[in-house]
């Protein structure tokens, strides 16, 4: 009995929980992070950091929300922190900008030659400002309900509805305008 107590605090069980979490949610967390940072290497690094953070703060998980929602919140906050970081604003953006231009040129040529509608939809969604992109992503890709999105992003349901509506208007403008 004593051993169990020591093992509990010695975190052996936390490690198992994280292993399970990776098996269950690894892929969706990676995709979620990518939807924010739009870069594969960065998404992989951040996903690693997110699971380590999750391991470290496991004892703060209060079971008020589902484990998945709790993990998602960590992932979303971590991704947003990255987008706000000095490194991202000063280094990543500076390096990536030329590619963005290149991309849009290619996209333009493509749209003249042959319009791939799927590609266009994906591209405009990924170009939405973060607050609109995330609600579109959570609603249409992850198929969460308005209530679940509100809980995950810690906002009112009415805020989520407003953003979703605005996001669709923006998408419509870019696709049809």
């Amino acid at each position: 009995m004593d051993e169990i107590t020591f093992d509990q605090i010695s975190t052996a069980s936390s490690e198992e929980i994280i292993n399970e979490a990776m098996k269950e949610y690894g892929k969706e967390i990676l995709q979620l992070v990518y939807s924010y940072v739009k870069n594969r290497a960065a998404a992989e690094d951040l996903t690693q950091e997110i699971f380590i953070k999750c391991y470290k703060s496991l004892h703060t998980y209060k079971q008020k929300s589902t484990f998945r929602t709790w993990l998602w919140r960590i992932a979303i906050n971590h991704s947003k922190d990255y987008l706000k970081s000095w490194h991202y604003k000063n280094i990543v953006l500076a390096i990536e900008e030329p590619f963005l231009h290149e991309d849009s040129n290619i996209a333009l040529e493509k749209s003249i030659i042959q319009k791939d509608e799927d590609e266009e939809l994906a591209a405009v969604v990924m170009k939405l400002p973060v607050i609109y992109r995330e609600v579109i992503y959570l609603y249409y890709f992850q198929e969460l309900s308005i209530r679940e999105i509100a809980a995950t992003l810690m906002k009112n349901e009415s805020t989520i509805k407003t953003r979703l509506k605005r996001a669709k208007e923006l998408l419509k403008e870019s696709l049809e305008g």
Binding site: K27, Q31, T47
Partner: peptide
Amino acid sequence: KVFNQLEF
């Protein structure tokens, strides 16, 4: 189109 290169 977006996640095709992305694997955990």
